[in-house]
Design a protein around this nucleic acid. Structure first.
Lengths: 347, 347
DNA sequence: TTGTAGGCGTTATCAC
DNA sequence: GTGATAACGCCTACAA
């Protein structure tokens, strides 16, 4: 096909404060003042400028402003995956809090890779973000890239998965209590032989869930039995295997507290397929309150992690730190909520 | 508490190309050339600059570069909600494609509100995004805000929900075929009285799903019965009500093709609670292939919308349009995939 | 109250 | 090959 020169797109080039100034025969400085609510300007010119700005369909260039005053009005959110209900709901919370304040959010997925996390933070630094809200990748061990952010004076806020060795604000849920509550609930229902499915004991959150489980047992004078703790990856297939293993024990459990909903689901699926009646033969409680836990024909008890609240709170900590430059580090812990459903109600 | 002046944070102020230049006793221009692979530079100085840049832990300021050359290396993604599996997976696809090219993504939720959509696009314009990838809010009627983006010469790409009256590229799935396949599948299983749950017939995607359903019926010489089409909001409660209504008809259906998984789930839950056996008494197929459809004790047949592929493709269209300024508008349609599961397999 | 001028960090166009 | 300089669009001390 013959091309007759480069086709010109019909694009109105961007209007700047200079264009407005020229039209009104004033200077750009005045226009700038009018637009930024500066008191040093007469009411009449201000109104005039505002009107013409609207007429000319003026859109301020945030980049220029950002470059000038060193604030990009942008926050980086770093997390493992976006397409998991917990994380996407946290994002929603962050956005809802930040949007009214004129902030945009750049979302970066690490896919649980430390390299990617490091890369990502570099990019965010280049983008001059005003803050970073992060849930760290699972298998990170060194934290230079996080330290660097803090060194630059950029607020860093952890959510859900934090690094205790780094001094920064955080918002987490009380995993210990969540797990404790779940276990206690099962004990109150008369369960005595309670198994625990966990995921990755290197991560603080799973460590805490294990400890909460242990304390509840201890308080009820039920001896802790290591054989009843199974470590798995957080997926359904592993949950099935774990259940199979547990039920083959000489002394099988009459309840399961899982540190993940998917693990719980896998276990339930296997148990049902083998003819066990839930909760009659065995009760199950999950963790995370994933949407599917309530949709099931037999809804699964679970621990709600308050992701929306977590996101909102993380954002508001950021805003506070920004306003009050020497506000202290705060480590907030939210109470999780035990959602009791059919999988653990013995009438 | 007494505050002794403002505490100075220990922050290394950002290093610029001037700092590097000063150290090496050359000019910033040379540094810039070294960093940007400009050919007009000697190999030795280039290497020297690169090394010192690394040593000094230099991070280029993208804002400055963006301001200078009018490209922000940022793309806006506008969609109703982020915490829905379909959308968050599309985002993941977009990110995976754009990340290697050095692009960042700004994600904006409209919450299905046109006002918010309009606001959002304004913000993105201010942020000087290089492109917009959008799935429009449900009840929009006028599209000035979209036209404006195009007028500015910024690539606009629709995904899933497009506006046919606007000339722009799009990537959608063949909703017609998805629904057609589902219906045909049910007919092949011997079903003759098939109901259709739909959501909002103002939206093209739901219109198409209805039409696909109709064609499959027609081909099988099954008369279309308006009484079997129920319009609902896409949630579980409505699905229940719809099922209740349908089964109370004088001539109730023996199958349901739902335009939404949640609708299908609600219907299934109600049917089961009333003692109907699925699929023996009635088969059900959903739409979207939400994760829960496969998790269920009785997995639900559904249509997979290929969200990851959709995201990737949307991003690659954007990249193409950016490179080749007069590349043509393309409207790509992806084939959906019918996932046949227990809810519609008769033996 | 308004205008002038310099600068944010980078890139591009000149010269040399 | 390198240096000087202007420009991107906005903001803001300072001057008038």
């Amino acid at each position: 096909m013959l091309k007759l020169g480069v086709r010109k797109k019909n694009m109105e080039s961007n209007i700047t404060i200079y264009d407005i100034a020229k039209k009104l025969k004033i200077t750009a400085a005045t226009v700038s003042r009018a637009l930024s609510d500066n008191p040093r300007i007469s009411k009449s010119t201000k109104e005039l400028v505002l009107k013409t700005a609207k007429d000319m369909n003026y859109r301020p260039n945030r980049l220029a402003a950002a470059l000038k005053n060193g604030k990009s009005k942008t926050v980086g959110v770093v997390l493992p995956y976006i397409n998991k209900n917990f994380f996407s709901t946290v994002i929603r919370g962050i956005e809802e809090e930040l949007y009214p304040e004129g902030y945009n959010v750049i979302i970066c997925q690490t896919h649980e890779s430390v390299d990617r996390e490091r890369e990502t933070l570099k990019t965010l630094m280049k983008s001059q973000v005003d803050g970073v809200i992060i849930s760290v990748a699972r298998y990170s061990q060194d934290w230079d890239h996080l330290e660097e952010v803090i060194k630059k004076g950029i607020p860093l806020i952890f959510f859900d998965r934090r690094v205790t060795s780094i001094t920064a604000s955080s918002i987490t849920i009380d995993d210990f209590k969540g797990s404790y509550d779940a276990t206690k609930h099962l004990i109150q229902q008369g369960r005595r032989r309670i198994a625990h499915l966990t995921v990755d004991l290197l991560l603080e959150i799973y460590k805490n869930r294990l400890e909460g489980y242990k304390l509840a047992l201890k308080e009820a004078k039920i001896p802790f039995d290591e054989k009843l703790v199974v470590v798995l990856r957080s997926d359904i297939a592993e949950g099935k295997k774990a259940a199979e293993h547990l039920m083959s024990l000489q002394n099988p459990p009459d309840a399961i507290v899982s540190a993940s909903d998917h693990g719980a689901l896998g276990a339930i699926n296997w148990l049902k397929s083998e003819g066990y009646k839930i909760p009659r033969d065995i009760s199950v409680v999950g963790f995370s309150n994933e949407p599917f836990t309530q949709f099931m024909e037999m809804p699964i008890s679970s621990i709600d992690q308050k992701p929306l609240e977590m996101g909102k709170k993380a954002a508001s900590i950021f805003l506070k730190q920004l306003k009050d430059n020497n506000s202290d580090v705060e480590n907030i812990v939210i109470e999780p909520e035990l959602m009791i459903r059919a999988s653990s109600i013995l009438k």
